[in-house]
């Protein structure tokens, strides 16, 4: 039987890559301390900042919101209702329950009112759903945060997300994307600062935190994520991790500490979209283009068109 390295009680969690075991109480303590250390290491934000946490109803975002709340940061939540049937309904309910239980403020943005639901957009868009869904979430998160005076957007991206992204970007040597992969994306013209305080935690560590903290989150996978290459990449990295614990953390953190700075910073000129005014690199932003496509489809399906 493994024992908690802090108190000697029966351990409930053993973290192979840290070679450390914890009881419930000391795992939560370790997790919160590590979140705080990550926030400070990358100078993400301070107690004076007004944070907007992007909430999906899953383990990562709810664990993040819970940790920020316990660490006394000022953090409200934003749930974007993607309109993916029962999955979105369950996710919204989980977010509402979480916020109500802790007396936290949750904003809900309905994608259908803004443009269309993800299944509707999928009918007109050839790209994988995860690709345009991510784009839409980034756009509306930023717009919402700026319009409501939030200074920082926090997302629950974890070590598995980041190492899988890094793996994919290295496989294709996508230098532009590699240069943008960092735990903090500073604010710039029209863009609110974005931070990822959970980059040093594996998905399992977040799930353990959620479970041990009594957070009810949605375990089911988004139906559109089935077969996503990111899941395959995560499994490949997990196989490496199994043989050599610590591989993922080393792969990602060594990239951040030793390699990222070598990529240099390429200034991207942003200008307001001529239709919506949001920052973009082209005349019309990608979300307005998607809106136009979706509207054309709606018009063409009307009886008299």
């Amino acid at each position: 039987m493994k024992r908690c390295y802090k108190c000697g009680q029966k351990a409930v969690v053993f973290l192979k890559h840290h070679r450390i075991a914890f009881c419930r109480e000391h795992y939560i303590e370790w997790y919160l301390r590590r979140v705080e250390q990550t926030i400070k290491e990358f100078r993400m934000f301070g107690k004076e900042d007004k944070l907007l946490v992007a909430i999906s109803g899953g383990k990562d975002s709810l664990s993040l919101w819970d940790a920020l709340y316990r660490l006394s940061y000022s953090a409200d939540g934003l749930y974007i209702n993607l309109g993916i049937g029962e999955y979105s309904q369950k996710s919204l309910q989980a977010c509402k329950n979480f916020a109500d239980k802790r007396g936290l403020k949750l904003h809900v943005l309905d994608l259908q009112k803004e443009i269309a639901t993800i299944p509707q957009i999928k009918e007109v868009e050839k790209r994988p759903a995860c690709s345009f869904c991510g784009q839409l979430k980034r756009y509306y998160m930023n717009r919402f945060a700026r319009m409501h005076g939030y200074t920082v957007i926090a997302t629950g991206h974890n070590l598995d997300d980041e190492s899988a992204t890094l793996f994919s970007n290295v496989l294709s040597w996508n230098i532009e994307y590699l240069a943008r992969q960092y735990p903090v994306l500073p604010e710039s013209d029209g863009l609110v600062r974005k931070v990822k305080p959970l980059v040093k935690f594996t998905e399992k560590e977040n799930a353990l935190y959620a479970f041990l903290s009594g957070i009810d989150y949605v375990e089911e996978e988004c139906p559109f994520a089935e077969g996503a290459s990111s899941i395959e990449h995560k499994k490949i990295l997990s196989q490496l991790e199994e043989k050599s614990p610590g591989t993922k953390l080393r792969f990602y953190m060594d990239f951040i500490r030793k390699f990222h700075a070598l990529l240099g910073h390429k200034e991207v000129r942003l200008r307001p979209c001529s239709l919506c005014g949001e920052p973009t690199v082209s005349e019309v932003c990608s979300v307005c283009k998607l809106k136009e496509k979706t509207n054309l489809k709606t018009l063409s399906s009307l009886p008299n068109s």
Binding site: Q135, D161, C222, F224, A228, I231, S238
Partner: peptide, 12 residues
Amino acid sequence: VINAISGGLEYL
């Protein structure tokens, strides 16, 4: 059984 893997990442 809790499976922590979630997918659907939009690669950046």
